[in-house]
Structures are given as structure tokens and as C-alpha cells.
Design a protein around this nucleic acid. Structure first.
Lengths: 332, 332
DNA sequence: ATGAAAGCGCTAACAA
DNA sequence: TTGTTAGCGCTTTCAT
């Protein structure tokens, strides 16, 4: 393996000069720069990023801890983050927390060990008493994404309350009174907020809240499928359903199809989270679509600012969703 | 920041002892080990992975260069790889090559600079004359995934020819003669092989090959949508279509829906690549499903073997696909 | 059972 | 404009 020392020897200069031509960190005489470049070329030298990171004290690396990477929503979020980061010259290392505290701890520990220059976390339930303090203790800049927790750091996520409320109200305006809801994983803010939006819609229209219509979908396709199947095969089923995230939507659709129930005739349906192929589902889904690109880009922006040493007061940013009006809700 | 030296001082031992208790690399007296552990606890020490990598000469990191990360197929492939790797104690760093040579070069360069211990690449067209030689030159163990190129290294990918042939033959057996095909990005082996399978099916049944029925979908949803739209709005349209990857399938379905054509009545449809939600599409798609988990796990297995120094002759592994018989093809 | 010391390959003062 | 030198924090031989 060729090192900078080898290159220096070939070019007849010092290692420090080689380093400077490589990084453009100081003016180098054109003639010597050319010699160095020739030597690099000739020797097939590649810099050692590990040594570089150790000496410089920064890795140009950012860690992301997130769950359910196979979920298309998180998947696009990861790529929105990656795009913004690589535009800024950073490399992203992703770890899957599986929305489970111990697993999240493993991921963030490994990221911290690798000396990431910054960290973006979609916190699992309970994060604030284990992993988050660990991170802040190291002084690594941190921003929370997708969900918030009550800790002093930057946060970016989608707007939840008003969106879930709007979704529910749409159903109400269509004349529905018995509206079931698929609620997500407990302990995370997005679940609470979206559920609050649902309740607010009912309350705002004088509809009594009925606990029997609340399904615990646990943000999972399988759980949602089971719950919807159970509720819908019982007598006296609701005539409308709102699903509070995309994974649960899939489960709900599977269950409804299995039961032979038609949307929107038997059940009107709306959901939080859009699908890239929403047009190909039958029926086309009325959904509140998150703006993942903005969320990802904003998270990166906030993080880079912190990494530059900015210590302004932490921001909590909410990115609005867009209502996609299609036909699963049952309006013309 | 606390270093190993600090811990050593607190525990009243040498740094080397601290290192050994941390890594279990040599026997340490229980009493001293306890003192060291206490010192670690008390000081909140975290090891510096960068320094560790530099000293040890290995990073416990593997690089993956792949394209179209938002494509669900590649997405699951990435996660299959990640799962296998993290089970073996490695961290995966992923880069998106966008199936474009310069971009692939940027990704692999960055991975190599970071001193990954091994590399998995889904080669873009032309890779064998630019990035791949670069990688082998560094001596970094390499395995190719998804597509092959004629270079002496391990490769794992799906079976293409027989699968595409079976798909096409199914249509033929249903009585179709004018069968259009959506062909993928040119220059990559999977495109060639799947297309070969299509031609072989026609040839095997004495059906003349018709160039006008070959659509260049470029493995992209948009291109496929345009091409299918054009072909299907012209007169004398084919009555069957085979799509050779999932991105193009989406495009085809969009175009057909836009034209108001019904599957399978107006056009029988089969595709290479399955969808997780294939049951929710209308109609349910008859597809050849790749076994991503096996492909990913096999790639990792081959790579780890090379990383251990095995220098057996390179293997080319093909993982069979599974035929999912549903109703877009038009059989009962 | 433990320690001393020599690096790993690079960056960045500080000198010249 | 360039070189010298002292680390960065760890691993690992070689002693003891």
C-alpha cells in the first residue's frame, strides 16, 4: 500500500506538501504541484480516510438511526437525507433501530464509536431516557426527525394533528358518524398527535368518541390487518375508516379485500401517508401526503448548522402535508 | 474527550491493559479487570473507532454500491445485505450509483478511501473498464451482485433467462402470438439475459420475432409509461405484454390505466419481479419473484469468505426465481 | 499478568 | 513556498 510518504519520496518533497496539494490547504508552487500529481498518478496512491479522520478529528460522516427501513416512507426519507448530505460532502451511515430501544442503543453506539460528525435520529419509544442522553453527552450534534421528544435539540417532522383532523373531517362531511381509526405504535409522538387530530375532528362535530372503534395497529401491516379483519367481520361495523400510517393502510386494504368489502361503498377509507403507486391501488386512495424531501433536507440543514458550531436555541419544525383527494373516501 | 490513556490512569494500569480488557485479547487478572471496568464506567469512556481502525488496519466496514435505491427491489436487497452483514459484526455503508458510471466511480472511490474491508457492487454499464479494476487494484475483496460482468470475481444474481422465458411461454400457451416486451437498461447483463429468455420463448414456439414489439423501457417507470402508451395507442396493438423489471411494470400499468385498457382482457400482462403488495394491485400480477434474501445472504457469505483470505476460484451463483401465478395473465 | 514503546497514515502548527 | 515535527487514540509486539 502506498502512503503519502511514498508519494513524497517519489516527488522529492515532504509529506506535508503532498497533503497540501491533495487538500488544497495551502499555496503550492505549480511546478512542485505537478510533480506531486505525477507521483500520485504513477504510484496509484489513494488517501487513507481513516488516518485522515484521526489526524483531522472529523470523519465527514453522519449517522442516521431510523426504523422500518423497508417501509417506503422511511426509505424515501433516508434517501432525501442522503441526497442533501452527499451534496454537502458527507457520507451517511444508516442503522435500523427497528423502533426498539435496545436495538436503537446498539445502532447509536456503533455510530458514535465510528466518530460520526453528526447524528440524525428518528427516536424509538423511550429514547429520551437511554440513547438520546448518551448522544448529547458526547457532544455530537443531534437532530430528531419524524418524531419529537421533549429534549433540547432541533427537530423536524411532518404536521400531524391538523392533517389527521382534516382526513377525519372529510369523512364526517361525507355524512359518516361511526368512523374507526387505526392508531400507530404507542409511545411515539406522531401516533399521539395523529390520534389527537382524529379525536379533535369528532369533538368538533359533536360526535361521541367510541373506544370500540379505535384499533391498535402498532404501525404494522400485520397488526392492522388482524385488527381490521376482526372489527369488520363483527356485526355492526363502522362505515368509515382512517388509517394513520402507510404500513397500516396496507394491512387494512388486505383485510378489507379478504372480507370482500368494497371501498368506498361498504367502508369509506382515508389515510395518512401517500404511496408512490397510489394510482394503481384499487380504489385510488385519498391520503395526506408527507413532504419527505423537505423533511430530509431540513433535517440536514439544521444538522450542518449545528456542526458548524451554531448554538442558537433549538428549533422544532413541522412540515405541512398535502391532501391528495382521490376516490377511496367516496366523494365524486 | 476521554481516551484510553485517561482510563488507564484512573485504573492505575497501562493503556495496553485497558485495550486488552476492552477487546478480551489477553488474560487479565480479575481484580485489575474490575478496576479497569470501573474506571471506564466512571469516566464515561467510549472507544474511538477511527483510531482503532487505523491501528488495527481494519474498519469492520463493508461498502455497497448500488443503483436506484428507491426501487423496492434494490431496497430489499440492501436490507438483506445489511442484515447478513450486521449479524457478522460489520457495518454497511451504501452508495447510490444511479446506474451511471461517473457516479459509480465517485461512490466506490469514497468507499475505498474509507478503507472498507470489502465491497459489494451492482455494476453499472461500463463498470468493468473503470470502477471494477480500481477496486481490484487495491486488493479489496469484491463481490458483484444482481448483475455480472466478465471479470474474475465472485458474483450472485437472480436467474434471468429461464425465468423470462417461462413468463413469455405462459403467454404463448394462453394463445398469444403478438407479445410485446419492455426491455431494461442496456449494457447490463440482466437486461440482456431476460431479453434472451423472451426471444428464446418465441423461437421455441415458432413465433417470428418482431422488432416493433420491443419497447426500450430503460428500467425506468417513466420511459416504460411513455413507450407503452405510444405502442398501445397506435393501431394494431399487441394483446400481451411482458415487463422485465418492477420499475417498468409500474409505468406499464399507469399507461394502460390511462388508456382505459383492461388487463387481461385487452392486454394480458406478466412481469419479472414481484411486489410486496401485488395482491392490492388491480389486477393481481402474475410475476417471477426474485429471492432477495438469498441473493443478499449469499453475497455476504462469499464476501466474508474472501475477507478471510480464501482464494478459491471465483463463483458465479444464480438464485432461481419463483413463479407467482395470479390473474393479470388471464388464465382462470 | 502487565507494561513500554513503536507505529498505523495523516494533519497542522511552527519554523525556516 | 516548503519542510520539520508533534501528535490524533489505538493495537500489538516484545520485554519483564
Amino acid at each position: 500500500m502506498t502512503t503519502m510518504g511514498d508519494v513524497a519520496r517519489i516527488a522529492g518533497v515532504s509529506a506535508s506538501t503532498v497533503s497540501h496539494v491533495l487538500n488544497g490547504t495551502r499555496k503550492v508552487n505549480t511546478a512542485t504541484r505537478l510533480r506531486v500529481e505525477a507521483a500520485i498518478e504513477q504510484s496509484g496512491y489513494r488517501r487513507n480516510g481513516v488516518a485522515r479522520s484521526l489526524a483531522a478529528g472529523r470523519t465527514h460522516t453522519v449517522g442516521l438511526s431510523i426504523s422500518a427501513l423497508t417501509n417506503p416512507y422511511f426509505n424515501s426519507l433516508v434517501h432525501a437525507v442522503e441526497r442533501a448530505l452527499s451534496a454537502a460532502g458527507y457520507v451517511l451511515i444508516v442503522g435500523d433501530s427497528h423502533d426498539e430501544l435496545q436495538s436503537e442503543k446498539r445502532v447509536t453506539d456503533s455510530l458514535l464509536d465510528r466518530q460520526v460528525d453528526g447524528m440524525i435520529v428518528a427516536p424509538a419509544a423511550g429514547s429520551e431516557r437511554l440513547t438520546l442522553p448518551d448522544i448529547t453527552r458526547t457532544g455530537t450534534p443531534l437532530v430528531l426527525i419524524d418524531r419529537g421528544v421533549d429534549i433540547g435539540c432541533d427537530q423536524v417532522g411532518p404536521e400531524n394533528v391538523a392533517s389527521a383532523r382534516a382526513l377525519t373531517e372529510h369523512l364526517i362531511e361525507l355524512g359518516h358518524r361511526r368512523i374507526a381509526v387505526l392508531r400507530g405504535l404507542s409511545g411515539i409522538s406522531s401516533t399521539t398527535e395523529r390520534f389527537d387530530g382524529y379525536r379533535a375532528a369528532l369533538a368538533g362535530h359533536g360526535i361521541a368518541f367510541d373506544d370500540a372503534l379505535v384499533l391498535d395497529g402498532a404501525s404494522s401491516t400485520e397488526a392492522a390487518e388482524r385488527q381490521v379483519h376482526a372489527l369488520m367481520s363483527a356485526g355492526d361495523r363502522p362505515n368509515a375508516l382512517v388509517s394513520l400510517n402507510n404500513a397500516m393502510t396496507i394491512g387494512a386494504l388486505k383485510a378489507l379485500r379478504a372480507l370482500g368489502l368494497s371501498i368506498p361503498d361498504d367502508v369509506a377509507f382515508v389515510c395518512y401517508d401517500d404511496f408512490e403507486w397510489a394510482d394503481l391501488f384499487e380504489p385510488r386512495l385519498t391520503a395526506a401526503a408527507q413532504d419527505v424531501d423537505t423533511i430530509g433536507a431540513t433535517a440536514v440543514e439544521l444538522l450542518l448548522r449545528r456542526m458548524r458550531g451554531d448554538d442558537a436555541v433549538p428549533q422544532h419544525i413541522r412540515v405541512p402535508t398535502a391532501m391528495r383527494h382521490r376516490n377511496s373516501c367516496g366523494c365524486a
